[in-house]
Design a protein around this nucleic acid. Structure first.
Lengths: 344, 344
DNA sequence: TCAAAAGTGTTATCCTTACACCCATGT
DNA sequence: ACATGGGTGTAAGGATAACACTTTTGA
């Protein structure tokens, strides 16, 4: 038998909901001891005490990976998550810095789950956190975030130009242009993961510095300069292990699917107003949409149908309530919501 | 520590190339003993002797999952694969029927690799096989394959109607309509995996019957009727374990990416004619394209540029050679090839 | 009366599709 | 000459984006 015994399989869940206008993730804290799998506690030895919920994969009990996930999510949080989807399997060496201290190699299978925000209740419940606290440069709803031009792009350019090998330097510049939309390239709001990875490689997120320090006993790499230190302050809240990378993977996946799969409806109650639908799409895509055209797109594409009811809750004229037309799933090729963006 | 020790991690590669007009996969056979990882031989105990190449993940040696894959692919096949991408992680119980005989639970991380067809040369090289021998219903280039209407849809309808619970029956009918494009729904050429999964569940592929027989000692499930037996004859070549499912995952992913990412170019030499480009796209998408419009789409979108050279190989007027414009990667939002389909 | 939100209509523009047609080369 | 493949033009149709405008409610 090959030496595979020392890798451990863990399942992680990015559980997302949208309340009001903010996308939120269910996260657990150091104090939620029930979440720790015996001696495999992702919080010990790292600075950040906030993590994505995780659970074990038990080959003797769990018939499939997805059932394993649903089971421990229900046990731990008491939430019934609706839509689930496998995101990616993360297995880089030292993705868990405790490996440096003799901990096992942990391979983590990340899942995305969409639901509605409810109070978690299980053994080790957790709390909801604003997604854009972790990835602040991804929220463009109130104009382009100023940190991008003021902090991130200058720091990233400095990092790219510091590379001595011309071919690698060119590759860095190309990635910078592609992800952050520098020199005549537009910002692509799906490239969430690529942007996070660039920031991590350039040492501009706290996790990069944390991992550098963990490695410092064994491998010596230069610390951040003043610019990078400023950037780390500006790049938002950090999380345990590579969990911000998982969040970025999840957000990128959601944004990519939004336009060609009706995933938003998993985040909404059965009946909703068009404004609510628009708010959910806006909060996930991180941009403001053109109201009239948005409404026309979803109604012309027959993605929704009126329930006949009216909603007189908010101010202004009462809005018609709509429901998702389940039958579009078998009718249309790529039934997504359409994202008619608006200049901010 | 939770009971994770008994799960084994393996990496599988779907290595694809397009020669002439047929997409091919690199597969290994029973006789390629060097590919077996010690006592973990996926061929023993199953009927099919043809399998996707696989290799171990060695946590002590491999820095990342992707590097592990590239390393054993190079060792075993001698091929230098270019583009690689993680597909999916497969962990269902009994996905390897040897689990029933006390074998370990094997979690397999599937990768897609694109390259050019070369003679494999490593320790346990393998051979190239026509992808559509395994998924014959996916190739619509010479009209819609007759087995769909003659065999598959009748058998699938019979399977759906045989379900006693109305809600599950409805769900089966909905899936059938969505994947095989029955009742006024169009065939979506990206739903490759969903179609294979439906055929497997309905017992219309050889693997379903193989797995049923492997389980028969422990769990009794009814065998195929005459219609299903005919279908199994018609649904093409089978492969070891769940490797046809991995192929379906890979083909679905390729087809999905084709239109919004320039993945085809990974399968082509640096310079190519537009006809060659069109043939590669056609062979992967499984449909014929409208020549003039295809050419206009790729040239108008500035996806390619002329090299100035001419190709006088084939019959007819010599064709201009083109190269992929690498700079589109940072310019455009979703630079794919465009698929102007044509009625057959 | 005003703010806030729901809705409707119209037009310019772009992209795709479809069809028709001509060009260059080898046999 | 003709088969084979390369290559151009153009017009119809549909979808989107941008704009202006009306309607209905609560405070």
């Amino acid at each position: 038998m090959a030496d595979n015994g020392s890798a451990v399989i863990v399942l992680n869940a990015v559980i997302a909901a949208v309340t009001d206008k903010t996308p939120r993730l269910l996260m657990v804290r150091h104090t939620d001891h029930a979440l720790a799998v015996d001696n495999l506690n992702p919080f010990s030895g790292v600075d950040d005490d906030i993590a994505l919920p995780f659970g074990p994969f038990n080959p003797d009990r769990d018939r499939t990976l997805e059932l394993a996930l649903q089971q421990w999510v229900a046990e731990q949080t008491g939430l019934s998550i609706g839509y689930t989807e496998q995101l990616y399997t993360f297995g880089d060496r030292y993705r868990d810095p405790r490996e440096l201290a003799g901990g096992p190699r942990v391979v983590s299978i990340g899942y995305l789950a969409l639901g509605r925000e409810e109070a978690p209740s299980g053994d080790g419940h957790g709390d909801w956190f604003d997604l854009y606290d972790f990835l602040p440069w991804e929220d463009w709803r109130c104009n382009q975030p100023s940190i991008i031009d003021d902090v991130l792009i200058p720091s990233l350019e400095e990092w790219a130009d510091a590379e001595p090998y011309p071919s690698i330097r060119e590759e860095r510049r190309r990635r910078l242009a592609m992800t952050f939309g520098h020199d005549d390239a537009a910002w692509n709001f799906e490239h969430v993961l690529e942007r996070y990875e660039l920031l991590y490689e350039a040492g501009l997120v706290a996790e990069a510095e944390r991992d550098r320090l963990a490695r410092a006993k064994y491998i010596n790499t230069p610390g951040p300069n003043a610019g990078a230190r400023t950037a780390i302050e500006a790049t938002g809240r950090s999380a345990a292990l590579d969990h911000r990378r998982m969040m970025a993977t999840a957000l990128g996946r959601i944004r990519g699917k939004l336009t060609y799969r009706p995933v938003v409806f998993e985040l909404l109650p059965p009946a909703f107003t068009l404004l609510r639908l628009q708010q959910v799409v806006e909060s996930l895509s991180g941009i403001n949409l053109h109201k009239q055209n948005f409404r026309r797109l979803v109604t012309n594409n027959k993605l929704v149908e009126s329930t006949g009811a009216l909603d007189s809750e908010g101010p202004g004229r009462p809005a018609k309530m709509f429901r998702f037309r389940t039958s579009v799933l078998s009718e249309r090729q790529a039934p997504g919501v359409g994202v008619p963006s608006i200049a901010p």
